[in-house]
Amino acid sequence: MWKWIQAFASPQNFYYTAKKIIPWFLYPFIALTLVGLYWALIKSPPDYQQGDSVRIMYVHVPAAWMSLFIYVVMAVAGGIGLIWQIKLANVVAVVSAPIGAAFTFLALVTGAVWGKPMWGTWWVWDARLTSELILLFLYLAYMSLNNAFDNPKTASKASSVLAIVGLVNIPIIYYSVEWWNSLHQGSSIGVTKVSMHIDMFIALLLISFAFKFLYGVLILMRARDELLVREQNSRWVKAVVMEGKNND
């Protein structure tokens, strides 16, 4: 088992395997997006209080979920890279950051656009909104810390520490609506209950799976390039780059 993991995680092996599995993420992403859009914009009913504006939820909530999910992946991968010094783990952590930041930004902006007509304000400094904004700053800090070092190995060490410390913000974001009085409402999707209409729930699930696959496609593509840069002194990278082997 351990040998198998090591073999897969070897940079060269991953470089070729990743290329093969990209379509396995790309096509489900496209399919889920199309079906998800149909469900979100056409099939699902308007809300009894919010009318059609509830449709903003189908991009807002999946984006917010992704912002948390990617951060956890990034911090765990960073931790694995720190402890076991697996190069691939560091690469996954580094390429995840800008994608996570993009989803966090999307969650914040769509939240504001939804909040304006419903709550009556674009922004409030309540616990949920503030902790999500801190998440965006954590991603940005992680990215700039990574760029501050010339040596990617040193950079990964420093930024992984930041990512792991920042992990405490994740439960704070998730439970903020329960721990404190906030303007933001509580979670509709729990382990034991779903307090929304089934067609709304399906739309939400379709788009959130679409986003998961999108993340898969993007980290596979970006990890391949990051690996080339980090392994640029090994012979196989030179072969890939100079002989045009598998380099599309």
């Binding site: 009913p45 809300d47 419903m118 009556g120 709304m200």
Partner: peptide, 30 residues
């Protein structure tokens, strides 16, 4: 949620924000 201050038992609001709950359903169901 309303922002303001309490003057002689009456709350003079400068801002009123609506909060909604976590339940979503079509009007027929409601």
């Amino acid at each position: 949620i309303t922002t303001g201050s309490l003057v002689d038992g009456t709350f003079l609001a400068t801002e009123v924000l609506a909060k909604h709950d976590e339940n979503y359903m079509p009007p027929e169901v409601a």
